[in-house]
Amino acid sequence: MSNTDENKSSLSLLLQSKGLKAVHVDPQDPFLLDLIRETQQDQASTYDLKRIDEEVLGLVVQF
């Protein structure tokens, strides 16, 4: 990935064409609720990777 002028132009075109605006969120929006659940599960899985148990530490590398 690089910040080339070509990439910059492509981003600017995209943003202009969509007429971007700030948004007010509907807290009951199903997509939002799914996104929150999915993100929280994903974050929990990432944190779980930090829990190194004896089974992992006991793996023997011998070949």
Binding site: L14, L15, K18, L20, K21, V23, V25, F31, L32, L35, I36, T39, D42, Q43, T46, Y47, L49, K50
Partner: peptide
């Protein structure tokens, strides 16, 4: 560790995804 940073960035990623979706940006 990497995981300490990734969990935070996943939160920012979710906000950006939601913001882009409401603005009809598919990326």
């Amino acid at each position: 560790s990497y995981e300490d940073v990734e969990v935070l960035i996943k939160g920012v990623n979710a906000i950006l995804r939601y913001f882009f979706r409401l603005n009809s940006i598919p990326d």
